[in-house]
């Protein structure tokens, strides 16, 4: 029930037989995934296969009907879940960046630590400036989201999430809305994070990128995990016909 029960040799995220429906539409039909600390997991699959829903269930943006999701010992499926505790551990980056348009890049990064964690302003500002530098946006601190390109906004969104010092980062198709030329700068930022040992879960359509950074790849179709494995075997030696068909269409 509380975070101290979590043992680092056990998975940091444990998803067991999760079912999720929107009305009559069953989107997840018994999905199980374990993620170890420091692992980079990519979830791929056709549109509507439940990838995004799954990742949103991990930080309780969507609730689940049955099964269990545990993040560092916190039971996400529990109705009495302390959502704030969960969201301090889990950062999330969205497809549409979702920055706060009335705040500058720096303020976007500083807001949550100041308002939610009640940390002192000057400490937060030092950290926020360092994060903006880390996502290679030095000089853009005082720009508003509307003045930044999609790729720049997405990097601010990553910095904003990192400012909460999460243990896990969720990336929900974060490059899907970007212009091709800005995709790379965002992927480089994510790669830096992964190399520093951040536990990452990515829903992505960037197969080359998934192959490069993932420790493990999950392929979902119609609400179930069809196949999973390390990138080499997954991409070069897929067993299931559905996986092979999907890969043949996009590779």
């Amino acid at each position: 029930m509380n975070a101290t029960q979590w043992d680092p040799t056990r998975p940091i995220i444990s998803i067991v037989d999760v079912h999720k429906s929107f009305g009559d539409l069953e989107v997840l039909k018994g999905v199980s995934i374990d993620v170890m600390k420091g692992e980079v997991i990519c979830i791929i699959g056709p549109s509507g296969s439940g990838k995004s829903t799954l990742i949103r269930c991990i930080n309780a943006l969507n609730d689940i009907q049955s099964g269990s999701i545990t993040v560092e010992g916190l039971e996400v499926h529990d109705a009495k879940l302390d959502k704030l505790a969960l969201r301090r551990k889990v950062g999330m980056v969205f497809q549409q960046y979702n920055l706060f348009p009335h705040k500058t890049a720096l303020e976007n990064v500083m807001m949550a630590p100041i308002k939610v964690l009640k940390e002192p302003r000057d400490e937060v500002e030092t950290r926020a400036r360092a994060l903006i530098k880390k996502v290679r946006l030095e000089g853009k601190e005082d720009s508003y989201p509307g003045e930044l390109s999609g790729g720049q906004q997405q990097r601010v969104a990553i910095a904003r999430s990192l400012a909460m010092n999460p243990d896990v980062m969720l990336f929900d198709e974060v490059t899907a809305a970007l212009d091709p030329e800005t995709v790379k700068e965002v992927l480089v930022t994510i790669k830096d994070l992964a190399e520093e040992g951040m536990t990452c879960l990515l829903v992505t359509h960037e197969m080359g990128f998934a192959r490069e950074i993932a420790d493990h790849i999950y392929f979902t179709d119609r609400g179930v995990i069809v196949e999973h494995g390390p990138p080499e075997t997954f991409f070069d030696d897929a067993k299931d016909p559905r996986t092979r068909e999907f890969l043949s269409q996009i590779l």
């Binding site: 969201r87 549409q96 009335h102 308002k115 939610v116 999430s161």
Partner: peptide, 30 residues
């Protein structure tokens, strides 16, 4: 105010009141 903007605040751990006063209201006011 887009639902997704509020969702971002939600994911950062803002309470419902904080989301309203810090994000929704300043944008809605304009």
């Amino acid at each position: 105010v887009p639902e997704s903007t509020q969702e971002a605040a939600d994911a950062l751990g803002f309470s419902r009141l904080q989301t309203y006063t810090e994000v929704v209201l300043p944008l809605a006011f304009r």
